[in-house]
Design a protein around this nucleic acid. Structure first.
Lengths: 244, 244
DNA sequence: ATTTGAACTGTCACTACCGACAGTTACATG
DNA sequence: CATGTAACTGTCGGTAGTGACAGTTCAAAT
């Protein structure tokens, strides 16, 4: 019961935003739970590539070196599953479902890293994804029980830490200087994103082609872009127009 | 402790994917916890509008009617906060921070709905957002303690249910028929999304303008679209190109 | 009552885009 | 060796997009 109390206390600390340092969070987690290692990754997935935005972990430089030099990210099923879904990914489950990823787990064993753990997907707004991977030094049975009791703690802790990370570094604030688009500008952009030409949009909206171009020009100016194509890319990225 | 057991059992049921019916999930939640009402909303936010994709709740038709006729969605701070962030939103906190939303809480009291609760943001891939709102019939003190103990359960349950909903209806499968884009096609699309013309892209990539058009044509064909603008919109939506 | 912003329209000249024609080269896979 | 895929290039003719010129109308806000 005193353990329960420690967990609740830790979650309260996290919720009050008292933890934006990854190292601090990792220490807190390892002190509260029987966790061997932690990894937090924020990335932008596109096609089958990954653009890493933030990466923090406790596996050490040597493990990272091994992972990089052997290009293990190419076969890592945990990355694939966690950044592509919203459900917790059990490491052993991933291992059995993707036989081609054996080199990854064998490399881990080589350098003395356990192969039991779970990865929690943390979807973020704006198409980015993150994950918190938790690695434990336990037997399969032990882990099964431990996981059952603490997955909820892991999930909430991960969410709160992720929230703190996002709020902390939401600073790139390049989009605040943006003028608001009017209703017509949004409509015109929406139809352009659907592949309609000026003439078609004019017909759809029941206005003249010249007027469509007028709205589009205003939209380009407000978005600070040089072509309709770029305007639509911006609008989709910043969720300024709905999916049709 | 038997209550703890019930909670763990419920979470296990959810994790095994045994619950994709919202009504079923709501019943399970209300049986396991002291919850008055639940609401699950999946929506696509754009500008300050909302496109509702899925909505399930237990508040009843009358409450929904009141909410709609009085346009309470316009002032609802819970929608705004939960669909714009990743941190749990406490109802009373929202009420105090946004004085202009009083009509919402007064309407709730009018029809006998408690004003204590929490909303859990559930970010989804592809720019969509969802939330699970939990409404309880408790005094502020009671709720404070209850919430402290069970927020982690709510969060995990919400995540697992949300995952089940996404997996269940990911079927609109319009994008599975899509051919994979090659490296050059992706590059060309990326630069087009950045507002570059064919000539500029050709210069950047060190190839002829004709070749740029060749790649773009292939990309349009593969994406089944009619213009570069539409191609870029599609590519951004399906996360086929990185943010530059 | 004036100002502001959104919605709307027209013409001209230039540039960018797009489809259809018809190819070459290099590399991997069966 | 054949097949396939990616990367690459050229030309022609038509359509679409873009900037700069110069306006009107209507409703809401100051």
């Amino acid at each position: 019961m005193t353990e329960q109390q420690a967990v609740l206390d830790m979650l309260e600390i996290l919720e009050c935003g008292g933890c934006v340092e990854p190292a601090h969070f990792f220490t807190l987690m390892r002190r509260t739970f029987r966790i061997a290692h932690l990894l937090y990754l924020e990335a932008e997935p596109f096609a089958d590539e990954l653009k890493i935005c933030r990466l923090h972990h406790t596996f050490g430089a040597y493990a990272a070196e091994i992972y990089r030099t052997r290009s293990l990210h190419r076969i890592d099923p945990i990355l694939k599953l966690a950044l592509g879904g919203v459900r917790p990914v059990e490491w052993t489950m991933a291992r059995h479902r993707f036989p081609e990823c054996e080199p990854l787990f064998q490399s881990a064993q080589e350098i003395g890293i356990s192969t039991e753990g779970v990865a929690l997907p943390l979807p973020s707004p704006a198409g980015r994804m993150a994950l918190l991977a938790i690695n434990v030094n336990m037997s399969a049975d032990e882990w099964s029980t431990y996981r059952r009791h603490h997955l909820r703690d892991f999930q909430l802790a991960a969410n709160l830490f992720h929230a703190a990370m996002l709020e902390h570094a939401a600073m790139p604030g390049a989009f605040s200087t943006r003028e608001r688009l009017t209703g017509r500008e949004t409509e015109v952009l929406t139809w352009a994103a659907a592949g309609k030409s000026y003439w078609e949009i004019a017909t759809i909206l029941g206005i003249s082609e010249r007027t469509v171009r007028f709205f589009m020009t205003n939209a380009r100016r407000k978005l600070n872009v040089v072509s309709n194509t770029q305007a639509v890319a911006q609008a989709v990225r910043h969720a300024l127009i709905p999916t049709v």
